[in-house]
Design a protein around this nucleic acid. Structure first.
Lengths: 346, 346
DNA sequence: AGTTAGCACTCTTGCCACGAGAGTGCTAAT
DNA sequence: ATTAGCACTCTCGTGGCAAGAGTGCTAACT
């Protein structure tokens, strides 16, 4: 589609612009890379690249800036995605080992590490499971008319809620309820509980209702809940020198529901997807690029992680990093939370 | 200390400046409030106020701006702290009822509501308890060599961790361990467990170690963990028109550990404390004011909440709001989490 | 044909001057 | 004690101007 020389030139322009954020001129690039052509030749080539839409002028007599199409061509054809260097991998792994054992903490950490590694903002959704099953239920008295309901779900999730009873309730009653409901509902999903024909006392019914609601909420959750990190990385970039720009991106990232702007649902079921500038659905995202990947386990835990930044982004490095962290996260989840998955790959 | 008229003038200047963020001139204020004096008189009075350090000039021939001392005098002597209007209270209460029953969720919500109400940033720490006691312990198998350890602590806290055993472990062994450790450790603190003389098998010892660590971590936590909300409110204010200012406050609020900048530990044990500008310990906070209050229960749950914003702040409204939300939060915690407190007050 | 030197032209950016507007401090009169 | 008046100061927005960087085009060179 492009001559060899033009491709290479595009590559250089993108490289230079990504680094410096200033439009790159013909003269500048010749001197910078000691090209065996004069700036005039480069100017001619640039004119052709512009004609075909790979680069553009902010205005006459400024240097060239890659267009969305230019970046897309680069990502598709020019960039060689190389594996992350060993030491980068090691650093990331190391940071992960700081984490405790709570799933949310992992997700949060993944966002932080990703954001730091690619120097942009990162979003990681809390993974959702397929309809979760109840593994154990506990009631712990905290007052005569109140108890703490603790649910252990499949895949090592724990949920809790304080229950207030309409009348004082004895410790023995509480443990009776616990035993009965455990016997009745263990291994069941929220839907099962709704349709259950079990004979329940009024108190038991009250507890069962709470159980059902908590489980339903846990199933629903997922893509709506996400951790965002590295906003500062984005704000720092020269494209946000003015305060309006800053506020607008801040709104985008914090106010609005990020999960609506990023096509977590439509991305290919595995591998990294890149959305560049106007390729994004939402108008507000037209100046930004998103690099997104799903992660999860064969057993049905699934989440997604994304990097968000200006279209001027190191696509190669970003894609590698997202891929690596998504894989790492998947692996960790499989090992710790979903070992009884249908197809394990260690 | 100040003549009546000067006090009132100071009050007007502060009111006007807080509203508009532009230095207030003698002429402007006379016209704005229809004062029965000429601007010349006001100029004389302003000169005196400046001499005594209550207001200052950004430069010759700009209007006056309140100084830290001016704000302090205002807060101490001039401002009448009136109760929040009923409807404001109602709105806040209403927002609180959206919450679920998890403590962290409450804290997060408190920060969000506070930030919105006072149009500034708000920080609320996760409350810490006095040395927490174990109420119940559960082990749920999730794999032959792994189990989920769930701890229920006093005051309805739940902690969890995945445990990996060095060898496969039978379900009966697991429940035996659970029973034994429950019998041994219920009602005990982390310190008790360390000094326990109980005879434990190797597996039990492994679990006990984890229990002790989790509890110790829970006790340690608290002031270090906090929710921050409303950064945008602060960034929007005219004092942050330039992007450097924006970045600097962003760093202050997000990068650094907020709990180090805000004197949560030194504040009076009850009631609202106000730190204005240079009164703050940390140099970086010299342009900001902090309104902070502890909250908690007589039973020993205790946290703190703070509003952070430029010194140009509606102190009256902010103080009332912080007081109200701190009280509300205390009340809710007492009702739901700490009903067996030594001195209950409903 | 591909490449290059040269040149006129364009557009941004920083700088300086300038005037309008807002505010001050002081003096003298009320 | 208050006020009118006035000279003075400082900010801020505007417009002009020169420097710098880059472009597009033409004509010459290999």
């Amino acid at each position: 589609m492009l001559t060899d020389r033009r491709s290479q030139l595009l590559s250089l322009i993108i490289g230079e612009y990504v680094d410096t954020a200033i439009p790159v001129g013909s003269d500048a690039i010749v001197r910078r890379f000691d090209l065996p052509f004069s700036s005039a030749t480069i100017r001619n080539e640039m004119a052709r690249l512009e004609e075909e839409g790979f680069i553009s002028h902010p205005h006459t007599s400024a240097g060239r800036v890659p267009s969305d199409k230019g970046y897309r061509y680069y990502v598709e054809m020019l960039m060689q995605e190389r594996d992350l260097p060993q030491d980068a991998k090691q650093t990331i792994r190391h940071q992960f080992h700081q984490a405790g054992r709570e799933e949310d903490e992992w997700v949060h950490l993944a966002a932080a590490v990703l954001a730091r590694s690619v120097e942009n903002a990162a979003v990681v959704t809390v993974p959702r499971t397929a309809a979760s099953r109840l593994k154990r239920l506990e009631l712990v008295a905290i007052q005569d008319t109140a108890a703490l309901l603790v649910l252990v779900l499949q895949q090592a999730r724990v949920k809790q809620q304080v229950l207030i009873f309409p009348e004082p309730i004895a410790a023995e009653t509480l443990s009776a309820i616990t035993m009965h409901l455990n016997a009745e509902f263990c291994g069941h999903t929220a839907a099962d509980i709704v349709h259950s024909q079990a004979q329940l006392t009024q108190m038991e019914w009250l507890v069962a209702t709470a159980v059902r609601e908590i489980m339903a909420a846990a199933d629903r959750g997922g893509y709506d809940e996400a951790y965002l990190e590295g906003v500062r990385n984005v704000l720092q970039k020269p494209e946000f020198a003015t305060s309006e720009k800053m506020l607008s991106i801040l709104d985008l990232l914090e106010q609005r529901n990020l999960t609506k702007l990023i096509p977590f649902r439509e991305i290919s079921t595995d591998g990294v997807t890149v959305m560049i500038g106007a390729e994004n659905e939402d108008d507000l995202m037209h100046d930004y690029s998103v690099v997104v990947s799903p992660y999860g386990t064969p057993g049905g835990i699934s989440g997604a992680m994304a990097v968000v930044g200006p279209t001027r982004m190191r696509y190669g490095q970003t894609i590698s990093t997202v891929r690596f962290i998504a894989d790492l996260m998947s692996e960790m989840l499989t090992t710790y939370y979903d070992p009884d998955a249908p197809v394990g790959e260690k």
